[in-house]
């Protein structure tokens, strides 16, 4: 972990060589989700509520998923851009260094400009939470932290899966953005507004529902029965990450036997 921060530090120094570009990117990153959020606002302006969910409640949903996504894009960008790493043969370099491959790929890139997106998402989160009347308990705070951190795990898992494909294809697969961007778009609303099969897919296959919809019901006291289950739902994110790491290792083994 200490080594990871050293990687980040050197990347930060590199980024600071291009200050103007950094600030412009950060600003731009800030504006994109803001536009999406504005869309959300006008939607509720017109319809008032969706399936019993008010605007601030959906905003929490939105903010949690966007915060998790922004954090992931910051630090797991190495996996997102992994196709260039394989294409240019840089992965060979990773293999001749005495450290794990995951750590080194994570350390290969850190997208500081995404901090803009993160900041904006956090602002929405605070705004949404403060306009709701929630009785905060320590458990609810833990739940909120779990929601975001496990969201990061899920997105990281998808990034790793996508990167693993590069071992076979060399080029990145746009298809995977259906899962990252698409998943993000879907999961910024509470899952119960969708068809059953969509909700099931995003609960049991890619558990986005487990990191915002289900635990949010716990925070908003909308649950029936055992609240603890709802509260611990985000840990599905950790469970999701495990097979992704396994698949990654299979990919690395494939790369080392084909050397493509």
């Amino acid at each position: 972990m200490r080594l990871y921060w050293k990687y980040v530090w050197i990347l930060f120094k590199s980024q600071m060589q291009y200050r103007a570009s950094f600030w412009l990117l950060t600003l731009g990153q800030c504006l994109t989700p803001l536009a999406v959020f504005a869309g959300l606002y006008f939607l509720f302006e017109r319809f008032g509520q969706i399936r019993g969910w008010s605007f601030p409640e959906v905003a929490v949903c939105f903010a949690v998923i966007h915060t998790a996504f922004a954090i992931t894009e910051c630090f797991a960008r190495g996996f997102d851009l992994f196709s260039t790493m394989v294409g240019q043969g840089e992965f060979d370099r990773v293999l001749v260094r005495p450290r794990g491959t995951i750590l080194q790929v994570l350390g290969s890139k850190f997208e500081f400009a995404r901090a803009g997106r993160l900041l904006q998402s956090l602002l929405v989160l605070f705004f949404a939470l403060s306009s709701l009347t929630i009785e905060w308990t320590p458990l609810k705070t833990v739940t909120l932290i779990l929601m975001i951190s496990c969201g990061v795990f899920i997105f990281t898992g998808i990034f790793i899966l996508a990167a693993t494909f590069c071992f076979w294809t060399i080029q990145g697969l746009e298809v995977v953005h259906i899962l990252t961007d698409g998943g993000k778009e879907m999961a910024q609303y509470p899952l119960n507004i969708y068809q059953k099969w969509v909700a099931r897919f995003f609960t049991f296959v890619i558990p986005f529902g487990c990191i915002n919809y289900l635990p949010l019901m716990y925070i908003l006291d909308k649950t029936e029965g055992n609240g603890i289950l709802y509260m611990l739902a985000p840990t599905a994110g950790i469970i999701f990450l495990l097979p992704c790491l396994l698949v990654w290792n299979i990919g690395v083994r494939h790369y080392r036997s084909t050397g493509s």
Partner: peptide
């Protein structure tokens, strides 16, 4: 192919390598 970090002074790359190789 370079093993050094492109945008930072050489000594920074050396120090990171020191940490990578312990």
């Amino acid at each position: 192919r370079s093993q050094l970090w492109w945008d930072v002074p050489v000594i920074d790359s050396f120090e990171l390598l020191r940490d990578i190789y312990k």
